[in-house]
Design a protein around this nucleic acid. Structure first.
Lengths: 225, 225
DNA sequence: CCAAAAGTGTTATGCTTACACCCATGC
DNA sequence: GCATGGGTGTAAGCATAACACTTTTGG
């Protein structure tokens, strides 16, 4: 009854910045998932996983779908980042990009059900391919996602999504040190975390025995609303 | 050369949450600009200023245009808020809404070049019309904008956009008190502001003489990047 | 027994908050 | 001259940071 006759419509795509942490040359490094484009425009260049929004598809669902195609069944945290709208961001014509960012566990995408197989790779954020010359405005999108992650890390429970369900305080501290690019006092850090995040609590019986002295193991459970 | 043949396209609209501060019954109150809808759907209900994105129009430019139509030549601060995408948010069919929020000076929109004249009104955020039953998902959009404003106020130079170019510390304090709904110590508040915002500095000769003792007058100038 | 990493306790430091007090004006 | 709001100085309180020290294991 309210059908729109001929409103101007624009193409809308969704792009996902998938982050994970992996041990690189100098300790943990933040990595982002990129895929090599096959069709033009920007053929053979690296780009974020992206695609066109389905007519009856939710934005977040679309982002989930795009990311799962590249990482298999891994779980992740997903959040809307920003809507990019430069007129010339896609040479094919006006295309809005609603960007999301995702946080995955460090081992995610290792044995991926990657339909597109070898043309998906994790890249260190500090060393993007071709000096950061990515397709579309994706270098800018990654910068924005990185800034958002850094800004929210201190007050939002984001770091836990980059770790397994249970973890030691040292592991958690390494996550913060890798993303904020500074060091934290190992003795004060646990106190600060426990004070800031009520959902963070030690798992009673369990201990981590990978280092000399067995370390306490923690779990984060999101508090009810 | 790269023209897209027939990608699925969706309608994209832009909605703007315009905020200002005005003295109401209990001191300053945060107000939002609403317009009464004439065409269906949601005919005769109150809604945010909104419209369809032009084919070659930037999102921010569209938001500017929509707001200027209702407020005349007033200056304002504008920031992208979020992209809302519920499938049923518009009964006419799938429509994305890229929401922006704007901050205007308290006297903005007083003598507006309102083309649509009497069907635009400022409403206190705490007392929206019809108990907050607005058109589309606009009640939710306003809540999100309000939360963003409250969250960023403490660390971002937002409050200055709600005041004239020069202002006293008491005026600035009233802005914070109205938005955060708490009181601030009048003696500590100026020190905290000057410490937080390097661009905030007193105007040398000038004084405000509206209260008993002439008050120092300040100006905020955004620091160079 | 020694090295290495986990974990505890205590002190120093600096920022925020509270508040006592003085100042400049209108009436 | 006195009530009112503007403004300064200072001390208490609190949270963070720094660090000495103990604990628990592997080798």
């Amino acid at each position: 009854m309210f059908e729109q006759a001929s409103l101007p419509r624009v193409a809308v795509s969704v792009d996902v910045v998938g982050f994970r942490l992996q041990s690189g040359e100098a300790g943990l490094e933040l990595q982002v998932l990129l895929v090599r484009r096959l069709p033009p425009p920007f053929a053979w260049q690296w780009a974020l996983p992206g695609g066109v929004l389905g007519a009856d598809e939710r934005l977040a669902a679309c982002a989930c779908r795009l990311l799962r195609e590249r990482t298999g069944g891994a779980e992740f945290y997903l959040e809307q980042l920003y809507t990019f709208d430069a007129l010339d961001r896609d040479p094919r014509g006006r295309t809005l990009s609603v960007a999301y960012y995702a946080l995955l566990r460090g081992d995610a995408g290792e044995a991926p059900a990657e339909r597109d197989a070898a043309d998906a790779r994790w890249w260190p954020v500090r060393r993007l391919p071709a000096g950061g010359m990515l397709a579309f405005d994706h270098a800018q999108v990654i910068r924005a996602a990185h800034e958002r992650l850094r800004g929210k890390l201190d007050y939002a429970p984001l770091a836990f999504h980059l770790l397994p369900a249970t973890f030691t305080m040292t592991q958690l501290r390494r996550v913060y040190e890798a993303i904020q690019e500074r060091s934290y006092d190992p003795t004060n850090f646990p106190r600060a975390m426990l004070a800031r995040f009520p959902g963070l609590a030690p798992v009673v019986g369990e201990r981590d025995r990978t280092s000399k002295r067995p370390a306490r193991v923690y779990r984060y459970e999101a508090p009810p609303a």
